[in-house]
Simulated scan of single mutants.
Amino acid sequence: MSGDRPEISYEQAREELVEVVRKLEAGGTTLEESLALWERGEELAATCQRWLDGARERLAKAQAAHEEKPN
């Protein structure tokens, strides 16, 4: 994400991405508007992927720590 825009939550990014897709599928936008929507969709998809990657990493660390503890 750009440095001037704060990170948004996964849920916010996902909801906005759904809205972007809906607008693109509905059509009726100019080429410039469609390109702007596509670019925003790419940003939102990348944000969602970063959140998911971070969650996977945290889960893997938690599982590894749990497996290392003696019973």
Rank of each mutant, 00 (worst) to 15 (best):
Q63C: 09
R22C: 04
M1E: 09
W51Y: 10
A36V: 02
K23N: 00
P70I: 08
E43C: 08
D4K: 14
H66D: 11
Y10F: 15
E39Q: 09
R56T: 15
A26H: 03
K61D: 14
K61E: 10
E57W: 12
A62W: 04
R14C: 06
G41F: 03
K23C: 03
C48F: 05
D53Y: 06
D4Y: 12
R50M: 14
G54T: 01
P70V: 15
G41C: 04
E7G: 06
M1Y: 14
E19R: 08
Q49R: 14
L44W: 01
R5N: 12
L44P: 04
V20C: 01
V18F: 07
R22Q: 05
A60Q: 13
T47D: 06
R58D: 09
S2Y: 14
E15V: 05
G41Y: 05
R14E: 13
L52A: 06
G41R: 01
C48E: 07
M1A: 14
T47L: 09
I8S: 10
S9D: 10
E39K: 02
E33H: 02
V21P: 03
D4N: 15
V18E: 13
L24S: 02
Q49P: 03
R50P: 05
N71L: 10
E67A: 15
E16N: 09
G41N: 00
E11D: 13
E25T: 05
R14D: 10
L17A: 11
E25M: 01
G54H: 09
R50G: 08
E67W: 10
E32I: 01
Q63E: 15
R58A: 13
G27S: 04
R40A: 02
R50E: 07
K61I: 11
A13G: 04
A65Q: 08
E39H: 08
A64K: 12
R14G: 06
A60H: 15
A13S: 06
L37Q: 01
D4T: 12
A26Y: 03
K23L: 02
Y10I: 07
L44H: 04
T30P: 02
R22T: 05
G27M: 05
A65L: 14
Q63P: 08
A64Q: 13
K69G: 13
N71I: 09
C48H: 04
H66P: 00
E39G: 01
A55P: 05
K23P: 02
E7H: 11
A36M: 03
V20F: 01
E16W: 05
R5G: 06
S9I: 11
P70W: 14
T30Y: 00
E68K: 13
W38F: 02
W38L: 03
L59W: 10
R40N: 03
E32Q: 03
Q63W: 11
E39L: 02
A26W: 01
E68V: 07
L31G: 04
E16F: 02
D4R: 14
T30L: 00
A46T: 10
E16T: 02
E16Q: 09
E11K: 12
A36Q: 09
P6Q: 15
C48I: 13
E67P: 07
L59G: 08
V18A: 07
K61H: 09
L31Q: 00
Y10H: 14
A64L: 09
R50W: 07
K23W: 00
E15C: 05
A62K: 13
Q63A: 13
A46Y: 09
